[in-house]
Design a protein around this nucleic acid. Structure first.
Lengths: 150, 150
DNA sequence: CTACGAATTCAAGCCGACTTGAGGTCAAGC
DNA sequence: GCTTGACCTCAAGTCGGCTTGAATTCGTAG
């Protein structure tokens, strides 16, 4: 079978059909055809969805994800910008590492309250060194396309 | 000066005063005192805020962050659970790395559409290997672990 | 051919994380 | 003593990312 219908995609990807329709509505994925009313998806959509999943766990908005990989596959963002995105991810990974270390430390440290523990404070200080601009949990979009910097 | 008022915290942390009040309302941070009506914060709150920032960029909800570091500093989650969180972060970092690589690849690869590029597909395949459960961009919380009452 | 159930559309609703605005308080400098 | 402006509270609004529900349309199995 060449095309999948939405139920199958939902099951295999773990993404609910309602979300799939929504993604399509906003142009993040597309269905190749209809059989009657029913959307038919190219199996490749499964790959795309895992990519989307990755992007989401990385904290990107759907818009940003769409921008990374060209809404419909093509627009092809300037390579320069893609590299910048990758670098941003890199930075994010460093943040995660700090957080992970902080967590591990808290798990092991016997200090009664962690903000009193010098090791912990040291960790946090390195965290705040790189100011890591305030991000209001994504209600706002960048005014222009993906203007990453700051 | 021992205590900071909200404007100062806002300026030094980059977190708007309105957000600070909100954080306090949900018990994520606290102000130590009032001078008149004005909240007075312990400078330590700055460290806490950078930690919160880290958690946010890592894609955690404020509830989850509160759970990690004990809402008011104390509750002290079971160490076991903290380690699990750390491991989760680890997993997330791996996801980020994949995404970063994918991005870098897209930046360099000359293939007309990336889903046709074998290298890219290979990357994605490894991404989807670890199914990485569907996360509806954080409207839902974990049913059991970490359910912060309120 | 009919019934079933999976899919469809569309509008409305929901949750988290804030922001905005109106109207009020208060400490510090003149 | 007055003004100023930073702060306060509280209610309402916003935005992204979906979900839910009602009313409908189909493809397929019996």
């Amino acid at each position: 079978m060449l095309l999948l219908d939405i139920g199958e995609v939902a099951e295999r990807s773990g993404v609910p059909a309602s979300a799939l329709r929504y993604y399509e509505e906003i142009g993040l994925i597309r269905s190749e055809a209809r059989r009657g009313l029913r959307r038919q998806y190219d199996p490749d959509v499964l790959l795309k969805l895992s990519l989307i999943g990755l992007g989401k766990t990385a904290g990107f908005s759907l818009d940003e994800i769409a921008a990374m990989f060209g809404a419909d596959g093509q627009p092809n963002i300037p390579r320069e910008q893609l590299r910048a995105q990758a670098d941003e991810l890199q930075r994010q990974m460093i943040g995660l590492r700090t957080l992970r270390d902080a967590l591990r430390h808290v798990a092991d440290c016997r200090a009664p309250t962690h903000l009193e523990c010098p090791t912990f404070r040291a960790l946090l200080r390195t965290a705040s060194r790189r100011p890591l601009a305030y991000t209001p949990s994504r209600p706002d979009k960048e005014k222009k396309l993906l203007s990453k910097r700051r």
